[in-house]
């Protein structure tokens, strides 16, 4: 399955969002995720099934003005 993660192409067999995050070493309670422009809440990641060509955004806190 082909995915776009933070703008970069990825090939993976993992189809659950939470498992993908773990496999790619995205860890911590400070991450926010969205798939195809829609927010996926932290508590919904374990049940979120990914599809081919999904676009995933993984954001974290940073300094801002």
């Amino acid at each position: 399955m082909k995915l776009t993660i933070n703008g970069e192409d990825h090939q993976t067999d993992i189809s659950i969002l939470s498992e993908l995050l773990t496999a790619l070493e995205y860890e911590g309670d400070w991450l926010a995720t969205a798939v195809n422009g829609e927010l996926v809440h932290r508590e919904d990641r374990e049940a979120f099934a990914l599809s081919d060509r999904d676009r995933i955004e993984i954001l974290s806190p940073m300094q801002g003005g």
Binding site: L24, Y26, A32, I58, S60, M62, G65
Partner: peptide, 22 residues
């Protein structure tokens, strides 16, 4: 204080360190 969000790099804990500081 104002804060923001940016794309996280795999394996990075930068965002977490900033979050903890705040």
């Amino acid at each position: 204080v104002t804060v923001s969000l940016r794309r996280e790099t795999a394996g990075s804990r930068t965002g977490g360190a900033f979050f903890e500081l705040i």
